[in-house]
Design a protein around this nucleic acid. Sequence first.
DNA 1: GTATCTTGATCGTTCGTTCAATCAAGATTA
DNA 2: TAATCTTGATTGAACGAACGATCAAGATAC
Lengths: 261, 261
Amino acid sequence: MKAAKSARAAVETGTAGASSRERILQEAERVFGANGFDGAAMRQVAEAAGVPVALVSYHFGSKEGLYRAVFERRVPTVVEQRLAGLAIAMSEADLDRRLELVVKALVFPMLHLRAHDRDPSFGRVLAHETMDPSSEQRGFIRDMFDPVARAVVEALASALPGRTEEDIWWAYEFMLGAMVYVMGDAGRIERLSGGLCRPDDEEGAVRHMVAFLTAGVRHGAPPPATKSRRPLKSNKPKGGETDATGDVSKGRRQTEGRRAR
Amino acid sequence: MKAAKSARAAVETGTAGASSRERILQEAERVFGANGFDGAAMRQVAEAAGVPVALVSYHFGSKEGLYRAVFERRVPTVVEQRLAGLAIAMSEADLDRRLELVVKALVFPMLHLRAHDRDPSFGRVLAHETMDPSSEQRGFIRDMFDPVARAVVEALASALPGRTEEDIWWAYEFMLGAMVYVMGDAGRIERLSGGLCRPDDEEGAVRHMVAFLTAGVRHGAPPPATKSRRPLKSNKPKGGETDATGDVSKGRRQTEGRRAR
DNA sequence: GTATCTTGATCGTTCGTTCAATCAAGATTA
DNA sequence: TAATCTTGATTGAACGAACGATCAAGATAC
């Protein structure tokens, strides 16, 4: 056997047996999912996998290399399933049914992943990375998901003739947001709903999400833009106490290099 | 003047003039927004505010104290505006119009904040914290937003008699996800849509989001649950290459303490 | 004069990474 | 068959850098 003494921790987490590299990957997914990229420590991953830290660097080069490997292990499957679902949807002539199939092709592979995996860690990794501003500079999401995103939007547009491209893109963003939020959930949904909504219940999550998102994009055509629209409620801050909208400088540089790592 | 030499960086970022404490808070919001809690360094905040690191600890006690202060400066305004919007909505007898007002009461204060602030940093802070699994253990989101969340769901239910509580909660989660995603966006939406969708365009974002989410909850009643539902697409992994669903141990402990900080 | 704010320096810790040495097997040679 | 070489995997130890936190001394305000 390759890793003789191997992992005390890995035994507890059920990742024994596998090769060191695979064991590191599995534990990395869990640690990144629980703490995010910056909050995770390579020593944490190594200890969980029952290997010395140096072995992690040996296999994956760097922390970012390990992070990337976690994505490359999961994403292709999701993308393939989405594309397959889109192909099926496009072969549907009835546009109403096609629309629902497109939405399902978008959300199903993700929720299926969350529900059927060892644990929901990768969903959290993905959600974390999606909401991380430095995600754009790493480019994982862009490189891996942008193509299928465009394909989804095209499919949505085909099922909704007459709707503007802007409408479709907005709708896509809302769909993505809802999905990512559920994927990354760490218990808030279940706590708030008193156990009524469980993100790990694949059937229920898919059923509700597909229905909601399909209805949103189908019946959610926004009213035309108005140049001067009366504000619907007063925005004047009531108490000066917590208000801090100095609004000193409007044009502010968007990005700031994160600290050296 | 209090801070005599003061900030070279603060001048660039337009936060001069203000008191040291306020300047630290403003820069903290920006740094946390750009890097997340773990990715941000107190030295980074201090340098940007033009003060020594020790002064940050003096004013806010710890890094988490500073983080909390960033939330406490912004959240109450949003919560108050939401509650005010909900009150207005509940006074509307027409349930269709009430529903739209409730949705608007939920999303408007947030998008308004993003669009009218110095920069969209707080939205990113919020999105990051929302998607951070350790968020639950910090409890900011829970303590600050749970009450108003329940109020929103009650208002939604009042406008949708006959719908199950489960439906409403799911819909609420999808709304929240869509909103958080747009709030935390770091440019992906605009890039993907080719500039068609700009999260900073408050009017457009609110108009599209309210329309989509209102339609989603109104017309998105899911079909009844079926015990045995034929799968709509094959889930068998095609290539074993990237597949790694060992599925060794199902019951896995959900949480793992993050490393000491 | 007292209290609050501000400063520079420094503490102990943990981080990601690096390095030379060791081990386990095959493949190659005699 | 026995000895040698080769290659990739693994290990423990250590490096320099950056981290959050702390403290005593100084400056400022009232």
